[in-house]
Amino acid sequence: MTEQRTVQFRVFRYKQGRERPWYDTFDVTVTPRTTVLEALQFIRRVHDPSLMLRHSCHHASCGTCGMRINGQERLACITRVHDIAGERVTVEPLANLPIIGDLVVDMKAFYAKFTPMAMPLIRHSEFLPEAEPPEGVDTYTRLENCIECGLCVSVCPVAASDPLYLGPAALAAAWRVVQEPRGQNVPEILAQVDTAHGCWRCHIAMECSAVCPSHVDPGAAIMALRGTLIRQHLPWRRKQQGGDAHEPR
């Protein structure tokens, strides 16, 4: 069970004021259970305390430890070193977001696009539908699936070429509001995604859904938004609603 082996970690480094980023290589002894996050914490503790990375919950619930591990967007906290092929692990920050230092990207632009989508955080819980809620609780609720990790934005080829693109996470959040408004202004949210840099910008590479660690399926959400908007824009539907479908009720 405790079969240990030594793995080379090639870690992307960058510090503000330096001209170019570089890689540092560290040897780390791992067991079958060691995660990439634990290995990076070890490097920070033993080799280089200046190594910058983001982490918080350690169980794929906070979304801070998203990074590219051998080129693939993953959460470091649930990626075991043993499950990665090869003797060398290259760790790089997420793409398509500005780098603050080492493995840390600036989430400002991400949240600036996410925030106008009404920031859904609590939703109706669909688990155990047969369960009766206790007295004093109207309906079982739970935290939303999206953990705002940014993996989808990093892997998205459109986000790579259009900095104004709202991106998979924000669009998926918008679709959640359409599905379960919880008092939000749905027509307003739809109007915000019905733009050239909104849901119509997607090129359906579906990488977002492939890398999402949290069952959000942003690709399907973007297509669902398109479907909703197309139905709204049908001429006979517009007439029925009396004017612009986006007009807040």
Binding site: M52, L53, R54, H55, S56, C57, C62
Partner: peptide, 9 residues
């Protein structure tokens, strides 16, 4: 570190 990276998160 990052905020909430210690015990809190």
């Amino acid at each position: 570190w990052e905020v909430t990276a210690g015990t809190t998160g």
